[in-house]
């Protein structure tokens, strides 16, 4: 979607303050609708706060100043599932919590994605017993699994980048 303003639009040549661009006289851009929609979705994905245990502390660390997640558009962590589109399941999901998790996932509007952060959410982790759900994909469909106990903030950001790659591959289908 790159256009060269100076070359393609003769009306702004010799205009140092770029005032014509600012008034909206850039021209017409054409692109595939898939690309535009996926670009919008990846760059403004709002995660839902679902920090359960230790991975939540690393998720908070990823949100904080050292490994900033706001650079990827995730400035806000919405507490309400109705206003978010990414659920990062960070931490171990116990059998008491599993119905709550499913209920919150159902309350999120489409399109929604799930990142399973950490070993406990991906496969039960260190805990193979009666109390922990062995992998959160028993409850919700997962898009990206991030390994680690807890995964470094950089690993989480890599997981989010992978999810962005995955979203960019999504294609629309004409129904009917």
């Amino acid at each position: 979607m790159g256009i060269d303003l100076q070359k393609d639009n003769p009306s702004i040549q010799g205009d140092p303050t770029n005032s014509t661009t600012k008034t909206g006289n850039v021209g017409v851009v054409t692109a595939r609708i898939d690309d535009v929609v996926n670009w919008a979705r990846t760059n403004s994905m709002w995660p839902m706060l679902f920090g359960l245990a230790c991975c939540a502390i690393e998720m908070m660390g990823a949100q904080a100043a050292n490994y900033d997640m706001s650079r990827f558009g995730m400035e806000l962590m919405r507490a309400s599932p109705r206003q978010s589109d990414l659920m990062i399941v960070a931490g171990r999901v116990s059998r008491k919590m599993a119905p709550v998790l499913r209920r919150l996932y159902d309350q999120m509007p489409d399109p929604k994605w799930v990142i399973s952060m950490g070993d406990c959410a991906s496969c039960g982790g260190v805990f193979n017993n009666y109390a922990i759900v062995q992998g959160v994909d028993e409850v919700v469909p997962v898009d990206v699994y991030v390994a680690g106990c807890p995964p470094r903030p950089e690993a989480l950001i890599h997981g989010i980048m992978t999810l962005h790659e995955k979203v960019k591959q999504e294609r629309f289908k004409l129904v009917g």
Partner: peptide, 23 residues
Amino acid sequence: IGYLHTGIEKNMESKTYLKAEVM
């Protein structure tokens, strides 16, 4: 409470002392 119950006390009984320290 109990939404994060991990069963650590029971799980530690089935691991050796050093492996239980990881938990």
